[in-house]
Structures are given as structure tokens and as C-alpha cells.
Design a protein around this nucleic acid. Structure first.
Lengths: 224, 224, 224, 224
DNA sequence: GATTAAACGAGACGGTACGTCTAGTCTTGAA
DNA sequence: TTCAAGACTAGACGTACCGTCTCGTTTAATC
């Protein structure tokens, strides 16, 4: 899964003059990730990023409006590269797969540091929240939607008629998966290992099945 | 639920000299919460907090090492005051209760802003993480443990023999509840309303029951 | 008598980047003198100087290392502007002229306040002492040397053959003149009026003549 | 020459309560001199002095109004102890003696640092100037008066009839001696050695004699 | 090939907050 | 009442970054 290259937003891109260096974009984003790992969000300074990238501060500010925007772009690239959902054959396997994949991403030092910081900042900045949503959150959510679709095709989960209700259920599942992994990783600060993933998957799939067929729980019981 | 007063960490609290003013502690924590709501984490300055509290900056720095420590203490007090778990008669009702209560707390502007910021910072600072854990996380987790205990007494959930496994299960449940609420509130930025709480509770209780009695889930249908 | 402009010491003055504003230099030095007169050395704060000059504190610190350096430069400009020695026709008249001129300078509030403070500080800081010497002391001493040269041309004083001895004598005369005026003005805190200048001149010229022609002092009586 | 012990100014010394410790006074003054030598005026802090003296800051403030007063007292004690003028038999020898003695005092690190600093401060503070005058300056001046008196008794200098004129002459001589030594020591930062003292004495005595008997300089020519 | 408009590096600029320091005062309990 | 201890208010210190602004210098697309 790879999306449009995030760099430079040039509203009225002119035709003449020296074009912006693509090298600079790359160098800046790479330097941002490196600095993030070394220093953390709080001590990350744009002057330092520019110096690492071998670029003047003005060049950096010509392309990004500030720290938040820059870091979101730098981190979003990682989410682009590392999220995908091959069909593992069952709802159970797919859930476990997505949990482990998401956890692996969150345990990288640059994402661990950056994600929470950017999200924290987004509680005060609607534009930033939208940016995070489209660059990061929605990419994760699409995996959950895809997995659910497959489970419905396989008959593991019923297909909901009401579109709005279906969307609400999808959101709920997404919040549960992403939330549990984030909380385990960043707040509880414990690793998401195979055992935890197995337990979580059993709980979630059990819940989904129980809710889907209330009173007569699951034809296909999870193989726990 | 009310715990020890968080104030002043004085390593070798001496017997002589003028004692620290308890008024100052109160004024500073109150001012911190107010400033947090008005300005948000990023624009919160300790000089401003001191001015609001009618206190010199040095007095503030004598008691807290920095912004993080101060804000954790200021916010932790809210968690002390606003978390409790009356027995609502069933696992289902207890889960729904704890979800709504936790969400209400997280939707207060001061906690919303502060919690993520502090957690973000804690990814780089072990001392801060421990502080958060003991001041905030553990208080929430104790509610989950209490609810589970009650459910086991009622016979809604089996009592696990293996202590370590029991602890792991408790951690899992806690990460799922807290994570889902946090993610819904702060990342998805959608309200935790009665409908969402109902859906989440059904999913979680369904999962717990299915996992606990695999192959014959249910009995007590999750409709409160 | 006007020497090189004292401004900014930029070790390896670079060719690139935005050049330093010359206006800022002027504004800062002017503001420093004004603040010195109003507040005195002890209450002079660099933040206040910066504010008066309409300049950021950082701009000030970029150019001067601290209070001492700044004030020396600010005051040195006055010594540049106000010291000169027109030929008054006789040793006697020249001495009286230089005494009155130096006293007038020392009685200006900004010099009175600053000179002693800076000199006091210089007892602990060799770099500062060198700075004072080249910016202030040497300018005064050159007047004394000039006056002596003229007196020798006129035949009022003998020309010393031994260069080292001549230099020692010049230093001695300088210490006597400058020391007496400084002590009268700043320690005894009495005015250097025409009468005092006349008495001092008689004493000094008498001494010089007596020493130069021991046993037969005078010839030219010291009554101008 | 030893004067009243300068310490503690207790306006209405009370009869009851714990008496003030005399040890404390001594310890504070000694600590002040030590700190002055080590740190210089600018970095001398009263907190540090109190700590060195093994005394609480309050004790210090109970006895002296501030830094200036304390340092003047601490230094004045040295002037008490080290100034005296034995009769050396001639004006010439007496001048040389007083010059060397005063120079020796000024070259002690604690006086060198303190005297200028206190004098500098006194340009803004009349009370401080009076204090310096009575504690330091007048003690020096009395030596000059004494030496002049002796010279008049010996017939080396004429006795002036006009009291006011006599006082003016005495002041002038004092400013020349003290000023030259101070300027040589602190501004020119050169040592007052035997050679300099000889040259200065010749100049001054020559001047005094020439002025006293204008047109027929000195019966007793200096033996330079 | 000359022109030209924008990007570039360097670094100074006005600001703001930082966390530390010192001055001088006040409050405690013990002597 | 003084003492040691140490908390208190007030405010300057010098530093670090922020984001903007000049400079003089490339650099490609257009003429």
C-alpha cells in the first residue's frame, strides 16, 4: 500500500524559477525520523533537523508549516510502507495478523514517540487531526474494513443491512483493536507478544461471534 | 476513591526551617488545571501557572521538576476524585458503568489535553512512566479488577486458578476497555455515547463469556 | 580625536547570511548610556537596555559578552569624542587644560558611574582590563604624551635620552594627573573647579621643573 | 591606629532576650574577606558568606543592611590595622613611607577588589559615601595631615595662615598621593615598587617646595 | 546563450519561555 | 529575643528555539 508522495504543498506552483529539490524533501523527512528517535518529540528542533538534512531552515519552512505537519508527514510514510493485509484464510488469523502487524509498527521507536505526540497535539488543532486521520488513521481502518468484508464473504460474520449500523460496528471494532494495541504498547508499556495477540484475538472474535448470533453463540467456534 | 495527597516530593524532609505551604500546593495544582484547559499543553508555561497561582516561579520549581511532573500530579487528582465502581448488579452493567465513567473523565478538557501529552512524553522518560502508572493507570486498573472479582463472585465469570494467567487476563481486559475508550475519544475523536457504550459492552462481555465457556457461549444473554 | 568604531566583535566575520544591523549597534550604545545615567551601574539590566534600544535581548548578547563589555564600549565612545589637546602655548596652560577637560568628562553622570564600576570589575578580569586600557586609558595617556612632547619642544622640559626612563616618567606623570582628578572627583567627591586645577597645576609643574633641574628649579615660574 | 569596633548597629539595644553572638560578627567579617578574595565583588553573595561563616542569612541581615555595608566594614578593619606613620625624620622619607604603605594595602587582593567596588557603588549612594569617608578615606587623610604637620615643624614646609587655604592644600596633597597610588595600582595595574615611589616622592616634594617658595625653589632639595 | 524568477545557504532578527540564581523577608522550632 | 534552617516573593540572568527576514548565490525553464 503506497500513497501519493506527501511532500511540498505549493499552492500556485509556478512554472519558472528554480524548481524545488526533491533531494531536500527526502533528506528532511529522513532527518526528521532520525532526530525523533534520538531526541523524542519534545527536544526535536527544526533547526536541528535542518542541520542534519544539510539544508537551511528556510528551505524547511518553505515546505512545511511547522513541527506538527513535518512530523506527521515523516511518520505517515512508515504507515504507508508497513501496513497490508494478506488473506490468512480465517477471521481469527486475520485479526491476529493485523494486531501483530500494527504492534510491530508501534514498537518502532520513531512511531512510538511520534504517534502519541502528534495525537496529543491534535486535541487542540482540528487541521492537524484531519491530517492525521487521512494520513494515518484511515489507512489502518481500511485494513479492518477489508478483514471484516472477507469474514462476511466467508460467512464468519453476518452482513448488516443497515449501512449506518454497519459503519458504527466497523468503527467500534477498529477502536477496540487499535485502542487495545496502543494502550498495551504505549500506556501499559508491555510488549504485544504472540501470547497477548492470541488472547486478544480470542476475546474479540468470541465477542463478535456472540454478538452476531445472540442466544446461540457461533457456529464456527474459534479454535482457541 | 481517594488516595494519598500528591504534593511535594521532599527527599529528606527536614525537621527545621519554615515548612512548605500547603496552600501553595493547592493553588498551583488548581492553576495548572485551569491553564491547561485554556491554553493546552503546548502553550502552558510554568511562569504563567506560577502567576495564576500567585506564587513565585521558584516555589513551583522547588516542588516539581518540570512541566510533566506538575501536570501528572494536577491531573492525577481528577482521577482520584472521579473514579469509583458501585456494584450495579451484573457484569454487563458494571462494564457499561466503568466505560461511561472513564469516558466522562477523558472528555473533560483538562484530562483530554493532558493525558495524551503526558503519555507521549513518558515514552522517553521511565521515571515519568512510573509516575503515570502509579498515579493514574493503576487507579483505573483497580476498578477493572474489582469488577472482575464481583463477576466471579456472582458466577458470571470463572475463577482462574493460575495466578499469573489471571493477571494476564486482567491486564488484557484493562487494555481493551481503557484502550477502546481512549482511542474512541482521543484518536477517532468521536463521543462515547450510550449507544457506543452498549455496543462495546456487548462485544466485551460476549467475548469474555465465549472465551470462558468455549463451545457453549452465552446462557446469560448480554442485554442487561 | 576619533578612533576606530568600537562595534561588534565578530571573530571570523562571515561573508554570507544576513549582515548585522549597524543601527542596532548605535541604538544599543545610546540606550546603554541613557540607562546608565538613569539607573546607575547596579540597576542597569541588559533586558532593559535591549528594550530601550528596541532590540531583542539576543541581539545584544550576540554582540557583547556581558554588561562589562557593553558598558566599556558605550563609555569609550565618550572618551573618543571629548578628549583632545589643542596647543595652549605653555606646559602650564596645557596641564590645566587637560585637567579641566578630564574632570569635565568624569563629572558626566554616565562616566562617573561607569568608570569606577568597570575598573573595579577589571581587577578580576584580565580581558576586561585590556579592553579598558586600549579603549579608555591609552587615549588619555596619549594626551599626556603629546603635552610632554610639546613642552620638550618649547624647552620647558628636558628631553630624556634613555627611552625606558622616559616611558617611566611619562607613566608617572599620567598616574599623577589622572589619579588626582579621579580621586578628587570620585573618592573625595569634591568638584574640580578652576581653583583646584590651578593649585594642582602649580604643584605638578613645580615638581616637574624641580626634578628636571634639581638644585635650580624654576626659571619659568608656574604662573602662566 | 585602631578605632571603635565597627560591627552591629543596634539602635535600641534591648536588655532582654538572647544576646547576639560576638563570634558571629567575627566569623561573618572574616568570611566576607575570604569570599571577596576568592570570588570578587560581583560574584560575592550574602548567602555564600553566611554559609562560610556557619551562620544563617537572617543573622547576617540582622546586623548589616546589605552587601555594601558589610563589605565596607569588612575592609575598613584592614585600614584600621595597617595604617600608621612613624616619624622617619624628613618630609621626603615620610612621603615615601606613606606611599609604600598605602600601596601595600591596596595590593592585598581583598582591598584591591573591594575598594574600587565600594567606591563605585558610592557614586550613587550618599550614605555609603559617608560611611566610606569616615571608615576609610579620613583615616588615610589623617596620615597626610600628620606628615605635613611634622614637615612644618621641621621647617620643610611653610605654615599657612589662612585656615581654609591650608585645608585646601591638604586636600590637594591627599588627592595627589592617594590618587596616584590608586591609579597606578588599579587602573594602570602596575606595581608600586621602590623606584616608582622614589620618582613620585621626588616629583611631589619638588612641587611642594617649588610652590611654597616660588621663584627660589626649595632650600632642602630632594636627594634624588 | 541570455534572461529571469524562484529556490537555496547562511545567519541575523524580534520574541518568548526556559530553568537558575540572588536579594531580602518571613516562619518555624530550639536555645 | 536570637539563632539555624529553609521556604517565600520578586525579578534579572544568559540560553535555546521559534518563525521571519535579509542577504548574496545557484539553478533550471523560458526566451
Amino acid at each position: 500500500m503506497t500513497s501519493a508522495p506527501s511532500p511540498a504543498r505549493r499552492p500556485g506552483a509556478s512554472r519558472t524559477g528554480r524548481p524545488r529539490s526533491a533531494d531536500a524533501d527526502r533528506a528532511i523527512l529522513t532527518a526528521t525520523r532520525a532526530a525523533l528517535v534520538e531526541l523524542g518529540w519534545g527536544k526535536l528542533t527544526l533547526g536541528d533537523v535542518a542541520a542534519r538534512a544539510g539544508v537551511a531552515k528556510t528551505t524547511l519552512y518553505r515546505r512545511w508549516a511547522g513541527k506538527n505537519e513535518l512530523v506527521v508527514d515523516a511518520v505517515a510514510a512508515l504507515f504507508d510502507e508497513h501496513l497490508e493485509l494478506p488473506d490468512r484464510g480465517s477471521l481469527h488469523a486475520d485479526v491476529e495478523g493485523v494486531v501483530l502487524q500494527f504492534a510491530a509498527l508501534l514498537e518502532r521507536p520513531e512511531t512510538k514517540t511520534a504517534l502519541m505526540a502528534v495525537v496529543a497535539e491534535s486535541t487542540r488543532d482540528d487541521a492537524l487531526r484531519d491530517r492525521i486521520r487521512s494520513a494515518i488513521v484511515d489507512r489502518q481502518k481500511s485494513l479492518v474494513l477489508l478483514g471484516r468484508e472477507r469474514a462476511q464473504l466467508r460467512g464468519e460474520l453476518p452482513r448488516e443491512e443497515d449501512g449506518a449500523a454497519a459503519a458504527r460496528t466497523a468503527d467500534l471494532i477498529f477502536d477496540v483493536i487499535a485502542g487495545a494495541v496502543v494502550h498495551r504498547t504505549l500506556v501499559s508499556a508491555e510488549p504485544v507478544d504472540a501470547e497477548w495477540a492470541r488472547g486478544f484475538t480470542a476475546l474479540l472474535v468470541g465477542g463478535l461471534t456472540a454478538v452476531a448470533v445472540p442466544g446461540a453463540a457461533g457456529g464456527r467456534a474459534p479454535d482457541a
